[in-house]
C-alpha cells in the first residue's frame, strides 16, 4: 500500500510517498535520486547497498521503508559533510578502487567498523567486512585502507 513516510537521511528530513514495502535502497535510488548506495544483489548478500542506521551498518535492500520512521539514516553522500571522512581519505591514499561499484558499500561498512572498534585487528576487519563482495578483488587494499584510517 502506498503511504507517506518521513525519513531522516543525512541529518535532513525527507518526505516520500511510496509502497510501504519498498526497500530503503530503492527509495534512495529511484525516489530521492541518491545513487551513491548501490544495488548489487537485492538479497543482503553482497553489501553494495550498505548504509548506516543509527550508526550501525545495514543492508538497505533488506529494510522496508515502513520500518525506518524516526531513525537516523546515513548514506555515502552524507558520511562526512565535506566528503573527508578518514575512511574516504584512506581509500584515496591507498588507491583502493578498480571498477569502484562496490566501494560505497565497502566504505560504509568500514566506517561503521571503526566507529565501534577504533583499533581492529586484521581478523576483526576480515570478519566485519566479510559481507561486502568486491568482484575486482581489492580486498587487500581495503584492509590496508582500514588500517590506515584506524591509525589516524
Amino acid at each position: 500500500m502506498i503511504k507517506k513516510f518521513s525519513l531522516k537521511i543525512n541529518k535532513k528530513v525527507q518526505n516520500v510517498q511510496v509502497d510501504e514495502n519498498m526497500p530503503l535502497l530503492w527509495v534512495l535510488r529511484d525516489v530521492l535520486e541518491m545513487p551513491g548506495t548501490k544495488y548489487g544483489c537485492g538479497v543482503g548478500s553482497c553489501g553494495a547497498c550498505t548504509v548506516h542506521l543509527n550508526g550501525q551498518a545495514v543492508r538497505s535492500c533488506q529494510l522496508p521503508v515502513s520500518a525506518l520512521a524516526g531513525q537516523e539514516i546515513t548514506t555515502i553522500e552524507g558520511l562526512a559533510a565535506k566528503g573527508d571522512h578518514p575512511v574516504q581519505k584512506a581509500w584515496l591514499d591507498v588507491d583502493v578502487a578498480q571498477c569502484g561499484y562496490c566501494q560505497s558499500g565497502q566504505i560504509m561498512s568500514a566506517a561503521a567498523l571503526l566507529k565501534n572498534n577504533p583499533n581492529p585487528t586484521e581478523e576483526d576487519i576480515e570478519n566485519y567486512m566479510t559481507g561486502n563482495i568486491c568482484r575486482c578483488g581489492t580486498y587487500t587494499r581495503i584492509k590496508k585502507a582500514i588500517q590506515l584510517a584506524a591509525s589516524k
Partner: peptide, 14 residues
C-alpha cells in the same frame, strides 16, 4: 585513479 574521489563519494558514474 583519476576517478577515485568520485568513487569514494558515491557520485553518479555508472
Amino acid at each position: 585513479n583519476v576517478e577515485g574521489a568520485k568513487i569514494v563519494h558515491g557520485k553518479s558514474l555508472f
